[in-house]
């Protein structure tokens, strides 16, 4: 199967020699939404950083829509893959949200009206018009998360990679974000510890542990497989596990 994302035999070690990715193979088809689950230090974020060339694999290849992720294609790949970092304060580095949303398209060479259109369209998707001209540190957590999403939507990516998109959000903000993401047509990779989020958004889940993929299943099946969850330090919220009795139910 050749997908929009094709990862083959990718290996990566930290400068101190510790191996983080140990032969990862993963193919994702256009329009798919896939959850990447697994314990901390399992290599999820490291893999995400490979998808648009922030990190280079020490072995193996990655292609996005047939374009190899290599230095001569960075410009193209970084347009196609939108990476939303876990800490929104890393993602939002400009004085106002609008300037941040414009940063990517400006690097692509857009100016004037074409730029304004891109920015407004991206802000529209996340309902961000009302906070567009505010500095990021004056936004609520939910607004910051939506602003961070807009900064990559303005590049009109084909693939969205979201690192822990719901961390630090209150329940209402989490709900708004899920609804926004569910409406987006592009391929999505969602790195998360939030199993209900995975179930709601992503039909397919993969688990990374020890630098390799240890499971690639439908999310529904995964949540039934308590042994697999436990092996990978994953746990359903209390009370959601139907196989045992709970005194509170």
């Amino acid at each position: 199967m050749s997908g929009v994302i094709d990862i083959r035999g990718v290996e990566y070690s930290y400068p101190d020699g510790r191996k983080v990715l140990n032969g990862v193979d993963l193919a994702i088809a256009a329009g798919e939404r896939v959850a990447i689950l697994g314990p901390n230090g399992g290599g999820k974020t490291t893999l995400a950083l490979h998808l648009n060339g922030i990190l280079q694999p020490h072995a193996g290849t990655i292609t996005v829509s047939g374009v190899p992720v290599a230095e001569e294609h960075y410009r193209e790949v970084r347009r196609m893959v939108g990476l939303v970092f876990q800490d929104t304060n890393d993602q939002l580095f400009m004085p106002t949200v609008r300037e941040d949303v414009a940063f990517g398209p400006m690097n692509l060479g857009l100016t004037d009206e074409a730029l304004d259109q891109r920015v407004d369209a991206a802000l529209e998707v996340v309902s961000g018009a009302e906070f567009a001209d505010r500095p990021p540190h004056h936004l609520s957590g939910g607004e910051r998360r939506r602003a961070a999403l807009a900064t990559v939507l303005s590049m009109e990516p084909e693939v969205l990679v979201l690192d822990e998109p719901t961390s630090g959000l209150d329940l209402a903000a989490r709900r708004e974000l899920i609804l926004t993401l569910a409406d987006l047509p592009m391929t999505q990779l969602v790195i998360t510890h939030d199993l209900p989020l995975a179930l709601e958004l992503c039909p397919r889940s993969v688990i990374m542990n020890g630098g390799r993929l240890v499971a690639d299943v439908t999310t529904g099946d995964l949540l039934e497989d308590l042994d697999l969850l436990a092996e990978n330090r994953l746990e359903l919220p209390y009370g959601f596990d139907r196989s045992t009795d709970h005194p509170g139910l």
């Binding site: 922030i54 970084r78 890393d90 690097n107 692509l108 990559v152």
Partner: peptide, 19 residues
């Protein structure tokens, strides 16, 4: 990390300036 986030959105070392 901010530098990585900038690279991810096509940063080349110069801040792009609107006209």
């Amino acid at each position: 990390r901010v530098h990585a986030a900038m690279l991810a959105r096509g940063f080349t070392g110069e801040m792009p300036m609107p006209s």
